[in-house]
Write a protein that binds this DNA or RNA. Structure first.
Lengths: 147, 147
DNA sequence: GCATATTAGTTACAATTGAAACTAAATTCA
DNA sequence: TGAATTTAGTTTCAATTGTAACTAATATGC
């Protein structure tokens, strides 16, 4: 018996959107003020923190952010001295991005904060539910790939 | 053994954000062009379609949207002739909102589209997983309430 | 080899958004 | 009562965002 009436508060895309925005907002409040960094900048840092030498486009692909957003975040981070670009020798359109010492410090301070937030969030789920959620997200992403 | 390294593609808030944005984007592409309607306007319509006579503030409470966003969406919809306001007799600060015939038509066309999208999305999940996801979202929302 | 197309990244511009300040009506309480 | 507070909704303003158009470099095809 499929749904025939649209009830927004039972509509999955909507429910996901609401809870996700609440979570993202709460998380970013943890670091935005303290470090003067917005969500896109933080995501660039997080990517480079783990994988130095990515290009802006690599970050776009990994983060599902818009390339304009990434471009601006990278420019802002460079301006703040948190990362540096180095033109790729083989392909001069690309720049390899790496966190500066300062950028690494910020990464080293925010990362545990973020992990702590996640850990706290996960306290409301059983281990099994957390694992399920992971699988479910993967499946939904797979579906979106094919769409 | 808790995580000690932040791996963005295993970080729940991030994973949720990516998949949710992909879903919201794909969905809104289904109706945005065809009907010239943005997400906030669509949400107002969806609420009024099911429950006519809501005030703008009722919509705010139900939709977790900002009241400015709702105010503007209502103004736009009125301008397009999709809804009408009627000042509440008892409390003149409020306006009762109802979809016009045209607005109801839009609702009647988009709602099945949205439900079809959701149904298609859910094909990748088992019934059990879909139920789990629902419960999990509720739990996460509960956590965010208390935060 | 060179014209054409694609890719990396940026810039310009317009639309969306939310915080803060505001208006007008209703409620509280002293 | 009537002054002070709260509530519904709007407006102003500045920040964020994405689309489209652009530059520069590389890859492709004839």
């Amino acid at each position: 018996m499929a749904k025939t009436t649209l009830q927004l508060d039972r509509f999955l895309p909507y429910r996901l959107s609401v809870v996700t925005n609440r979570i993202s907002g709460a998380l970013s409040r943890h670091y935005a003020d303290r470090f003067g960094i917005g969500i896109p900048e933080w995501r660039v840092i997080a990517n480079l923190g783990r994988t130095p030498g990515l290009t802006a486009n690599d970050v776009v692909e990994r983060s599902a952010m818009d390339k304009v957003t990434v471009s601006r975040a990278v420019a802002a981070l460079e301006h703040k001295g948190l990362l540096s670009r180095e033109r790729d020798a083989g392909d001069k359109r690309k720049s390899r991005l790496t966190l500066s010492a300062k950028g690494q410090t910020v990464y080293a301070e925010i990362a545990p904060l973020a992990l702590g937030f996640e850990r706290d969030l996960l306290t409301v789920l059983t281990a099994d539910e957390a694992a399920q959620l992971d699988r479910i997200i993967d499946k939904l992403n797979g579906k979106m790939d094919s769409l």
